[in-house]
Design a protein around this nucleic acid. Structure first.
Lengths: 111, 111
DNA sequence: TCTCCATATGTGCAATCATACATATGCTAT
DNA sequence: ATAGCATATGTATGATTGCACATATGGAGA
């Protein structure tokens, strides 16, 4: 549903969308993923290559249980997907958009 | 600086970038902005039209001091900019990228 | 100068969250 | 079946954070 605003300067009605309810909740949950250093590093690593929990833990120097917790979070939100090969589970980014957003962030910061 | 990873499957070296240090900090701070419902609503409102603190407060039904606090946050990170007209200060999005990211989020969620 | 409105700041509380420890589950090969 | 590695889960805790209350600043007009 659109929101109607009265422009203070032009005195005209402006139509636009302000997310509410479930979409708002989903959006904040989605973006909160990017708001933590550990998760950003995990996502960046997965943007380079699919990896298993142990690899991520070793490469990034993060406790295994922490990695596992965060990956579960990432999977719940649909940002990573898994593929089992024997006893090893490979994690990878499930969507280009995730990487797009990372790059947009870097772009915004001017790096 | 790039990170070198050993691909478990191909056994080849993979080169890529995992943000660390100041960039990592800036990125998490940047994305944490989007991780709160109040800020998302404020940003969405500003994507429709520039507005002053009181207008935002009224349109969105958020306490004035809360809006002011959040706008200060948003300004510190460089996401909004201000323009004074008399005693009224108009806030607006300072960069297209902010809106791009919002839309990417909506796109990811499939709305 | 005094008053009014717009905006900003100080502070405390409640709630959320990231992390690590200990432990459990699950898969594989011998 | 049992040993060993990979992964997941339960839980406690320290830290962070969003918010509103009260209050302060600051500009504009009378």
């Amino acid at each position: 549903m659109d929101t109607l605003l009265l422009d203070r300067r032009t005195q005209g009605l402006i139509e636009g969308y302000v997310p509410e309810g479930e979409l708002l909740f989903s959006l904040t949950r989605f973006f909160s993923i990017f708001a933590d250093g550990t998760r950003l590093r995990i996502l960046s690593a997965l943007a380079i290559s699919e990896m298993c929990v142990t690899d991520i833990s070793r490469v990034l120097g993060i406790n295994q249980t922490t990695v596992s917790h965060q990956l579960r979070f990432l999977k719940d939100v649909g940002m990573v997907c898994t593929e089992r090969h024997g006893k090893i589970i490979f994690y990878s980014l499930s969507n280009e958009i995730v990487n797009d957003i990372l790059l947009k962030g870097v772009e915004f910061l001017g790096y």
